[in-house]
């Protein structure tokens, strides 16, 4: 399990991360969201043992990550800003990684190079950004990491390769209980992959939840009644309405209640229409922060 407790980090007087807490369960996929400058990369670099915290603890399975080679040997980090040794091909880089990481899996490496169809002898610095990202994935996955830390992993990859990459990652999660922590701007893509997620804003963790729990807690419903409500009557009393929008006689509600509770509460007023609509992760976050007019929308998009 990856755990951060009360992490603080200042850069030249700027508080990049403030009292941040984060928990990633072993064998799960965690999505870390936030706008540019929210502090996602800083958190990931702390988890990868690159940066030293001003205060707080960053632990993997109860052990501090910083300067801990045994943990770092089981962890792979793919930064947004990629780096390979100058004038090295993928083959040469693989030789280095093989001698550094004990978990190097040569079969996996060969399988992945065949899958991604990468020229093994060409200098990596000559590759396009997307190709470099694929190379980074091949190297990282081939180390058979127990912990995979990804910073904006799908930027620069075409949709086909994205699928391929996520498939490989999820295979690792399924087969080896690999723990994945990935930062992203793209909520839509991540919501199908993540088990849990955290939203950061201005160095703080705004919300951190299990995705299923989050989705089961918030409902998007479309409701219409035969008659208008009597003065003083509230047909949604007993429900925690996060957002309400009326179009003619139809109300669109975002409600933080379990589905059963919502259904029974509204049916008690005999609606002519009650539909549960699909709710995207993007909407959940927007309404969780108080609706689309709220500044929280800017936090995300």
């Amino acid at each position: 399990m990856i755990e951060i407790r009360n992490l603080n980090k200042k850069f030249d007087g700027f508080q990049a991360v403030s009292d941040l807490n984060l928990r990633v369960k072993t064998g799960s996929v965690y999505g870390l969201f936030g706008t540019n400058g929210a502090g996602k990369t800083t958190v990931l670099k702390h988890i990868a043992g690159i940066l030293r915290a001003d205060s707080g603890a960053i632990e993997i399975n109860g052990e501090s990550v910083y300067e801990n080679c045994s943990i770092k040997g089981r962890l792979a980090f793919i930064p947004d800003d990629l780096y390979f040794f100058s004038a090295c091909s993928l083959q040469e880089s693989a030789l280095f990684y093989r001698s550094v990481y004990r978990g190097w899996n040569q079969d996996l490496y060969e399988e992945m190079t065949a899958l991604f169809k990468i020229d093994l002898r060409r200098k990596l610095s000559k590759f396009s950004k997307g190709m470099q990202k694929q190379a980074a994935f091949i190297l990282a996955i081939s180390t058979s990491p127990d912990y995979l830390i990804l910073d904006e992993p799908i930027d620069g990859l075409d949709p086909l390769i994205r699928k391929l990459v996520w498939k490989r990652i999820l295979d690792g999660v399924a087969e080896r209980k690999m723990t994945v922590l990935s930062s992203s701007h793209n909520l839509r893509e991540m919501e199908n992959i993540c088990d849990s997620m955290g939203l950061m804003s201005e160095g703080r963790m705004m919300i951190e939840r299990d995705l299923n729990e989050l989705k089961s807690d918030i409902q998007k419903v479309q409701v219409a009644f035969r008659n208008e409500a009597a003065p003083g009557e509230n047909r949604y009393s007993g429900l925690e309405v996060m957002h309400r929008e009326s179009r003619g006689s139809i109300d669109l509600l975002i409600v933080r209640n379990p589905k059963n509770a919502v259904e029974s509460s509204i049916r008690a007023h005999d609606p002519i229409l009650l539909d549960f609509l699909p709710l995207s992760l993007e909407e959940i976050f927007i309404y969780e922060f108080g609706g689309d007019e709220n500044a929280a929308k800017d936090t995300l998009f």
């Binding site: 670099k45 990868a48 043992g49 690159i50 300067e67 080679c69 045994s70 770092k72 040997g73 962890l75 792979a76 980090f77 930064p79 800003d81 990629l82 780096y83 550094v100 990481y101 830390i149």
Partner: peptide, 21 residues
């Protein structure tokens, strides 16, 4: 040289080496 760019510094220090190593 790896110390002088964010990407290279990150990759090198994410590897299983201590700073002294």
């Amino acid at each position: 040289r790896y110390l002088h760019a964010a990407g290279s510094a990150s990759v090198m220090h994410a590897m299983p080496f201590t700073r002294f190593t």
